[in-house]
Simulated scan of single mutants.
Amino acid sequence: MKYLLLIPDGMADWEVEELDRRTPLEVAETENMDFLAKEGACGIAKTVPDGFEPGSDVANLTILGVDVRKHYTGRGPIEALARGVKGKLVFRCNLVKVEDGVMVDYSGGRISDEEARKVIEELNRAKPYDFVKFYAGKSYRNLLVINKDFRDDVKTFPPHDITGKEIDKHLPSGGELAELLKELMGWSAEILPEITDKANMIWPWGGGRMPSFPNFGQRYGLRGAMITEVDLLEGIAKGMGMDVVQVEGITGYIDTNYRGLVRETARALENYDFVVLHTEGIDEVGHEGDAELKVRAIELYDSKIVGKLLNKVDLDETRILLLPDHPTPVKVKTHVAEPVPFTLYGRGRDEVKVYTEKSCRRGKFGLVDGLRLMDLLIKK
């Protein structure tokens, strides 16, 4: 038996006024995800434990069976695992655009990988402290490493949560480390405009110490592989001892290399017992707050990912679990911690006929703790 986990990041949503009080998923034509719901069994999953922010790090770790209450240290350190980066403290470091004290663009104009690398090189060349170092990631998603001990806990805010808001109320707080981060942000605002017109400030967030996750193969007795468009999921995979399959031409947006993602997923299923395919584009559109574009993004995912995979895999020998990690409602342009709809193909059927937020609530699994999802997928 093969196991395929499909995670369209941020796909779940709320009812949207301009969509006649329907969610983007309800409006979108999704015959392939509907097939999985009709021929499988459904439910809703709580992927963000109480007390945690609804980040993709927390949600995806939970889906993969990792108890974040025991193992989570922050987003930055997980992305550091993906890059082979180590340090005492690691923060995600967005390249952002701030105008008149307001967060205008958390993605630095979707700065290209190449231009972002040049920015990081210049930041390292001009950095004010030897214990500080920047590492390039993908596009606006970069890393800040601080190799110095700080005992205080710093509070930071994800920049995608404050789009259109004044940044003064969302700057780092909590002691000496927070003061250092604010100093670096102010310093970057002075030099970035000389390097690029896309971004004019760094925004560190999600910091912590390097984590230790349970080994996937030892826990489940399966050989696993991850295919993803973002460092975060790559870091989770490497931290759990899973292989990472690279795909050329991926963008993390809805213009990504769908054909390549499908091709490599199908190949991975030939060589591995368990394969995760995580895609980012729908979540990015949710952050933009464009309901019609999110409908289009979901339809692209259904036809170019799910539909193509259904034609390539042996459905008699493959179990498929499909769910977003968290909702990203276009109304609020950020993540929320509400349960997400899931459908599981290959473990019986229920009365659900279409894959939507509402219909999955009527599925036979009901409300499920996200930590149980792996057991539902792979148990005999």
Rank of each mutant, 00 (worst) to 15 (best):
K2Y: 02
Y3Q: 09
L5V: 15
L5S: 12
L6V: 06
P8T: 13
D9P: 02
M11V: 00
T23K: 09
L25M: 15
E26N: 12
V27M: 14
A28C: 05
T30L: 11
L36W: 08
A37I: 05
K38Q: 10
E39F: 13
I44T: 08
I44G: 05
A45L: 09
A45P: 10
K46C: 07
K46D: 11
T47A: 07
F52H: 00
G55E: 02
A59G: 05
N60I: 12
I63G: 08
L64K: 09
V68S: 04
R69E: 14
P77N: 08
L81H: 09
L81M: 13
L89H: 10
V90F: 04
V90E: 13
L95C: 04
D100Q: 01
M103Y: 10
Y106C: 03
S107R: 06
S107P: 02
E114W: 08
E114A: 14
V119H: 02
E121L: 11
N124M: 10
A126D: 15
P128L: 15
Y129R: 15
F131D: 15
F131Y: 15
F134V: 11
Y135K: 12
K138Q: 14
Y140C: 01
N142F: 04
L144N: 03
N147W: 09
K148D: 13
D149Y: 14
R151P: 03
D153S: 15
P158R: 03
D161F: 00
I162Y: 08
I167W: 06
H170I: 14
P172F: 11
E179L: 12
L180P: 08
M185E: 14
A189H: 05
P193R: 12
K198W: 01
N200D: 14
M210T: 06
F213V: 08
F216M: 09
G217W: 01
R219M: 08
Y220V: 03
A225P: 10
M226D: 07
I227G: 07
E229S: 07
L232C: 09
L232R: 11
L233S: 13
E234P: 01
M240D: 10
M240S: 08
M242H: 08
V245D: 07
Q246Y: 15
I254T: 10
I254N: 02
D255I: 01
T256Q: 05
N257P: 08
Y258A: 03
R259Y: 14
T265F: 13
R267T: 11
L269H: 13
L269Q: 09
N271P: 01
N271M: 05
N271K: 15
D273S: 06
F274D: 11
H287D: 04
D290M: 02
E292V: 12
K294W: 02
V295E: 12
A297G: 00
E299T: 03
S303K: 15
S303G: 03
L309D: 12
R319V: 13
R319W: 11
L323F: 00
L323N: 04
P327Q: 03
P329G: 08
K331F: 00
V332F: 03
H335E: 04
V336P: 00
P339K: 02
T343I: 03
Y345I: 13
R347A: 14
D350I: 04
Y355N: 06
Y355I: 02
T356Y: 03
E357L: 03
L367H: 07
L367S: 07
R372I: 02
K379N: 13
